[in-house]
Write a protein that binds this DNA or RNA. Sequence first.
DNA 1: AATAATTTTTAGATTTGTCTAAATTTAAAA
DNA 2: TTTTAAATTTAGACAAATCTAAAAATTATT
Lengths: 216, 216
Amino acid sequence: MQSFTEENYLKTIYHLSVISNPVQTNAIAERTQTKAASVTDMLKKLSDKGLVDYIKYQGVTLTEKGKLAAINIVRKHRLWEVFLVEKLNFKWDEVHEVAEELEHIKSTLLTERLDEFLEFPKVDPHGDPIPDRHGNFADLSFIKLSKLKINDKGTITGVSEHSSPFLKHLEKLGLTLGKKIEVSEILDFDGSVELLIDEKKINISREVALHILISK
Amino acid sequence: MQSFTEENYLKTIYHLSVISNPVQTNAIAERTQTKAASVTDMLKKLSDKGLVDYIKYQGVTLTEKGKLAAINIVRKHRLWEVFLVEKLNFKWDEVHEVAEELEHIKSTLLTERLDEFLEFPKVDPHGDPIPDRHGNFADLSFIKLSKLKINDKGTITGVSEHSSPFLKHLEKLGLTLGKKIEVSEILDFDGSVELLIDEKKINISREVALHILISK
DNA sequence: AATAATTTTTAGATTTGTCTAAATTTAAAA
DNA sequence: TTTTAAATTTAGACAAATCTAAAAATTATT
Ligand SMILES: [Mn+2]
Ligand SMILES: [Mn+2]
Ligand SMILES: [Mn+2]
Ligand SMILES: [Mn+2]
């Protein structure tokens, strides 16, 4: 069994390895708000436990065992987020912190029953896929809104940035999951995008467009 | 804010102080599965934080601040137990361990919303009262089943022992919360009790009778 | 290829919570 | 009221997770 802290490292490595593999010490330090020296210590420990493959100065990769452990934490995190939004009326920008704690509750019975109670949701409130009990997820194909051309249409199905200010901003603009949009204009000089949504026109910056995920 | 460990000590002191006040070092050590020396260290720390009044060699008492903190943990523990039983179909002997972890989740928004979601339950699955957000509980008057005389009637409204084997035993005998019982006989030589329940007669040991709580 | 810049690791300390063994205090018994 | 027993505290050590500062390795630049 892993400690609370080890679990957070595993999850961090899991998320970072989507971006670059193997994962570097500094990247982990930055995301976990710690120092590189602390990360090195932990990597040795996780390596001893067979959860990561670690080569000095080169970085880490999750082993199969480590990957399964990480996915299980992601599963719990996202299930709890669904619970908070669907059952306890949390807003999508209020769930992350709490789920960060709830994801470490150990009971597998709890996880399975929660999944059932929520009727086996496939995605969390941010559109992120929820792995099943075996660690498999339905892979959803997203495109960044910033990749769309003029007159392209699509549905908002996810966000790649989870900070509360960003999510509140989207909420204010009416850019919530499930909404259909059409790109009506792309401003060349700053990359900002004009959208048609609910028969109204709104403008978003390129920065925002980069973090909205669209499916056709 | 208190650590996970500090919270467990506060809750332990709170529960033990019902039995004896001030609470002794060894009593805490026994309940928390630690050694007396460790308890002494922690008592000093809690005292420094103003959570307990501690006199060397004499024992500890919770301060008002410490008591409120303890009650808040008890509140969360019991609310989560209700959630597990009512919403996730846990049995009453399966909830304790999990609630022991869930009680430490920090969000007050979560606690309040959970309370609301559960429709403000007054008691947990073991009949224990749930304090409200201000720390007040409806005081329920229980009598131990072992105190009843022949022909006395009452309703099972609580248990004072939460171990899984004990609760499973009660379940098997049909002795669950809400059931009406009548004492039909008390055996003198071993203190065992014969009960009338659901128009059937069953026998329970004095040990069991001691841990069943009855209201009229 | 040599030097500089960056990244990572080691060395040594610190904090939290725990332990064992020894010393001290309090309570009980003679 | 001594003596003995029980409870509690101190002293010193240890594991986990962290830190700073210095050393080492890797990568980038001249
Ligand atoms: Mn976490
Ligand atoms: Mn999410
Ligand atoms: Mn606990
Ligand atoms: Mn309970």
